[in-house]
């Protein structure tokens, strides 16, 4: 009796939406294309050699984190206005996706810095603020874990998600206001003592422009969509479990 009523709803909710499947395929292909652009098409940097190619992922990944954390702000604002749980789920998806991309950004930066700066990590202002940015969003997850009442959790998480964007903006602008950073600027002129900056030739610029929409838009959007879907599937499972418990 119970299985009969449950089966049809189960199958409809576990099929992947066609748009999401298409987007995932496009993202996978685009990521591959972006890698080919960066690894094969772009010319080798005459000073840094092949290690410079990691930059085609390093900077776009930060951009993707920025987009994801921006989504968190949007989701938070929308939740506080409408009080619909789906917006909070979107905000949470933004934080988790952004955190993953921020880790990609930090890891690739570290790998690049080993041969160029001769160290994995240095307490440079920009590196420090990027690390603190990642910690802020871990604090967001801790804050969520500390609240039991779901309405209160959504409310507080929205507030903190909006406030936390200041650390992202801080990471973006710190390179302009702290003159002692050694991190090269990508847009505009680098700080005086930047080490390991480079001029982009046209093939390098093509590789960067090819990778930017992939890591900055396609990957975060796809990941967030999957995360939101995971949440709704989870809710469904909980609801079904509750219904089974009643029977």
């Amino acid at each position: 009796m119970a299985t009969k009523t449950l089966t049809p709803t189960k199958t409809t909710s576990t099929t992947i939406p066609r748009a999401l499947a298409a987007l995932t395929l496009v993202t996978l292909l685009a990521t591959l294309g972006g890698l080919l652009l960066g690894l094969l098409y772009a010319g080798t940097d005459d000073q840094q050699g092949h290690i410079q190619r990691i930059f085609y992922i390093h900077m776009p990944a930060f951009f993707g984190a920025f987009v994801a954390f921006g989504t968190t702000v949007f989701g938070g604002l929308a939740y506080l206005r409408t009080r619909q749980a789906k917006w909070d789920t979107l905000a949470l998806a933004g934080v988790e996706t952004g955190l993953a991309l921020a880790v990609v950004n930090l890891a690739t930066g570290s790998i690049w810095a080993r041969p160029i700066w001769n160290t994995w990590w240095t307490w440079d202002p920009r590196l420090t603020s990027a690390a603190i940015m990642a910690l802020t969003y871990m604090a967001y997850l801790m804050l969520r874990a500390g609240i039991e009442n779901p309405d209160q959790r959504r409310r507080f998480a929205s507030v903190y998600g909006i406030l936390a964007i200041t650390t992202v903006i801080m990471t973006l602008v710190i390179i302009r206001i702290r003159p002692d950073t050694i991190h090269p600027a990508v847009i505009g002129s680098s700080p005086q003592n930047a080490e390991g900056g480079f001029g982009l030739t046209s093939s390098m610029l093509t590789a960067l422009m090819g990778n930017l929409p992939v890591w900055g838009l396609l990957i975060p959007v796809t990941l967030m969509w999957w995360r939101v879907r995971l949440e709704s599937v989870q809710e469904r499972v909980e609801a079904l479990k509750a219904r089974l418990g009643e029977k």
Partner: peptide, 21 residues
């Protein structure tokens, strides 16, 4: 916010320090 959560006092420095950076 944090005084209304389960972990209370220990949570404030964790959420405040990065934002106050």
């Amino acid at each position: 916010m944090t005084v209304q959560t389960r972990t209370r006092e220990s949570l404030l420095p964790i959420v405040l320090l990065p934002v106050a950076l």
